[in-house]
Design a protein around this nucleic acid. Sequence first.
DNA 1: GCAGTATTTCAAATTATCTTTGAATATTGC
DNA 2: GCAATATTCAAAGATAATTTGAAATACTGC
Lengths: 116, 116
Amino acid sequence: MPSRIPEKIEKEIEEKGGLEKLIAAIPGKERIESYAKIFSALGDPTRLRILCFLAKQRSCVCLIREIVNLSYSKLSYHLSVMKNANLISGEKMGNYIIYEVTSLGRKYASEICGGD
Amino acid sequence: MPSRIPEKIEKEIEEKGGLEKLIAAIPGKERIESYAKIFSALGDPTRLRILCFLAKQRSCVCLIREIVNLSYSKLSYHLSVMKNANLISGEKMGNYIIYEVTSLGRKYASEICGGD
DNA sequence: GCAGTATTTCAAATTATCTTTGAATATTGC
DNA sequence: GCAATATTCAAAGATAATTTGAAATACTGC
């Protein structure tokens, strides 16, 4: 199927059982897109700071807001991105919503946030 | 510094040594931005497919192009994003440029791409 | 050095993401 | 039920990422 590629590379491919086999090993659309969504959500400095803070301490929106110094609506947007990627979850506690990291969020936090 | 937060949360913070301590544990700008860059680069389905393929087999641009079915210039753009994030590297081989995953790229590939 | 192939680069157009402002919803305490 | 607080939502605008198509670069073989 491919046109012309360097011999050296072609040889390597043959040794691995051929191109078809390599192509077949690429994950399907669903898996790829689910990871892409997670990494997109992680790909923003503000959201990483929020993740690192929440990994140490669950918190209401009002406190996160003070720490990352954002407007409520901006923060709310970023929290929704993280929530949709299943990095954090929120639950009501009286008048407040308390956000905390999910186990997925914790996994990435432990890689990114160091310390602890 | 914060206004009013739920008692329960306030208590948890005190038990951890206070808010200042938690804030101090958030990584600095440089570390945060460097991770954000990597995750942004990973946050795209096309680039994840390329990463998974290259993790199994280094390859010239022309072959990658056949596999992900993109125009040269589009592919070149995505390769440059991945290269800037230090997920892949390219070296000349005759008339070709052979791309391969870096050790950082391999680390994420092993998480994302499964199989092998 | 010329023709051909592989790859990148550039600028313009398109699309997606983020920000802003203001209003909406939900809960609490009176 | 009303006022106050916490939080989200929606629409418009701003910014950033991606796509497109054409032209530029770099290497190979003659």
